[in-house]
Simulated scan of single mutants.
Amino acid sequence: MEQAFIKNDPTRADKRKMVKSKYISDILNLLLDEDNEGLLARNQLPFITEENFDYTGGGLFVRME
């Protein structure tokens, strides 16, 4: 029981890896490259993870957490 509590503890530094997909990570970086406000957003990239993927006929929607 104690192990499950530790595993689900949101304060753990290693709880999640940033974006797992190199493709999605590269797209996020490209979107932020020429954006002046992107400098602040870029600092948040290590904390963003993929939450959900929706595939459509027109593309891919990625929900981030």
Rank of each mutant, 00 (worst) to 15 (best):
K22T: 13
L32G: 02
M64C: 10
N29T: 11
D54G: 02
D54Q: 09
Y55W: 11
R63F: 10
K22R: 15
E34W: 02
L28Q: 09
D26H: 09
Y55L: 15
G57N: 13
R63S: 12
F47K: 11
F47E: 10
R63E: 14
D54F: 08
D35W: 04
F61I: 12
G58D: 15
E65N: 14
L40D: 10
T49C: 04
Q44T: 11
F47I: 01
L30P: 01
G38N: 06
M64K: 05
G59P: 08
T56I: 03
P46T: 03
D26I: 05
L45C: 06
P46H: 04
D35L: 03
D54T: 15
K22I: 11
E51G: 09
E37V: 02
E34Q: 10
N43W: 03
E65V: 06
E51F: 07
G38H: 05
D26Q: 15
E51L: 07
Y55K: 15
L31Q: 09
L32W: 04
F53E: 13
T49V: 13
G57P: 01
F47V: 00
Y55I: 14
K22V: 14
R63G: 11
N29Q: 13
R42E: 05
F47H: 12
L31K: 07
R42P: 00
R63K: 13
L39E: 08
L60F: 06
I48K: 05
N29Y: 11
Q44R: 11
I48R: 06
G38E: 07
F53I: 15
P46W: 01
R42W: 00
R42L: 02
K22P: 06
R42D: 02
D54I: 15
L28W: 03
D33Q: 12
L31D: 03
E50I: 14
M64I: 09
K22N: 11
L31E: 05
L30H: 11
D26M: 07
V62F: 01
D33K: 14
L39N: 09
N52M: 09
Y55M: 12
T49K: 07
G38P: 02
I24L: 14
P46L: 03
P46R: 05
N36K: 08
I48S: 02
E50R: 06
L60V: 14
